[in-house]
Design a protein around this nucleic acid. Structure first.
Length: 106
DNA sequence: GGAGTGACACGGA
DNA sequence: GTCCGTGCCACTC
């Protein structure tokens, strides 16, 4: 825990840098950090910070663009409301990654 | 130190 | 394109 530059901290940094109206995937973040297949860790990190509203976890979706974190966010459609408020069209708890996908570190 | 956990990604059907 | 099962990595208890 002495290394503040650990995977845990980096995930939070990247998520906070996601611009409004854009979304990214867990795999993209994990791959950007060098974990590649550690996409599950990204979700785990947000799970510990889900109570932290400073983390726009609603902008992070899975490979299918589904708002998987919605169920962990608060159980309501708040996650979708936030995305729509930023201009991201959400359909059936899913977003169009082809239009709103954002690459970490961009 | 060891085992369990997790908001996923990939391959195959 | 979607659903099912398997594998990964880093962190917590």
């Amino acid at each position: 825990m002495k290394q503040q530059e650990s995977f845990y901290q980096k995930v939070l940094q990247v998520v906070q840098k996601i611009p409004p109206g854009k979304v990214t995937t867990y795999g993209a973040i994990a791959r950007y950090l060098g974990s590649g297949r550690g996409a599950r860790m990204v979700g785990w990190v947000l799970n510990t910070q889900k109570g932290n509203r400073q983390i726009p976890a609603h902008r992070v979706v899975n490979r299918k663009g589904m708002l998987t974190g919605k169920m962990h966010f608060d159980g309501s459609n708040l996650m979708q409301e936030l995305l729509e408020s930023e201009g991201v069209e959400v359909v059936d708890n899913r977003v169009d990654l082809k239009k709103y996908f954002w690459e970490p570190g961009l």
